[in-house]
Computed example of a mutant assay.
Amino acid sequence: MINAVTKTVKRARNGSVRGSGPTLLGVYLNDHLAGASAGAQLVRRMTRAHHGRAFEPQLAELTEEVREDLRSLRRFMDVLGVRRLRSRTAAGWLAERLGRLKFNGRVLSRSPLSDVLELEAMRLAVEAKADCWRSLRGLARADARLDPDRLDKLIQRARRQSQSLEAMRTTAATHVLSADVRADAAETRPAVVGTAGGGTAGAPRS
Rank of each mutant, 00 (worst) to 15 (best):
N3V: 09
A4C: 03
V9T: 03
V9E: 07
S20C: 10
G26K: 01
G26E: 07
Y28E: 13
L29S: 05
H32T: 05
H32L: 09
L33G: 08
A38G: 15
G39K: 00
L42Y: 00
A49F: 04
A49K: 02
A49C: 05
H50T: 02
F55Y: 07
L59C: 12
E61M: 11
T63K: 03
S72V: 07
G81S: 09
L85K: 02
S87W: 03
R88V: 09
G92F: 04
W93I: 07
A95G: 12
A95F: 09
F103C: 05
R106Y: 05
R106T: 15
L108V: 14
E118M: 01
E120M: 02
A121M: 06
M122E: 07
M122K: 01
M122S: 03
A125D: 03
K129C: 03
K129L: 07
C132P: 07
C132E: 10
R134H: 14
R134P: 10
L136D: 10
G138S: 09
L139W: 07
A144R: 15
D147Q: 03
D149I: 13
L151M: 13
K153Q: 14
L154Q: 08
A158Q: 04
A167Y: 00
V176Y: 12
A179H: 02
A185L: 15
A185G: 09
G194H: 09
T195H: 03
G198E: 08
A201M: 09
G202N: 10
A203N: 03
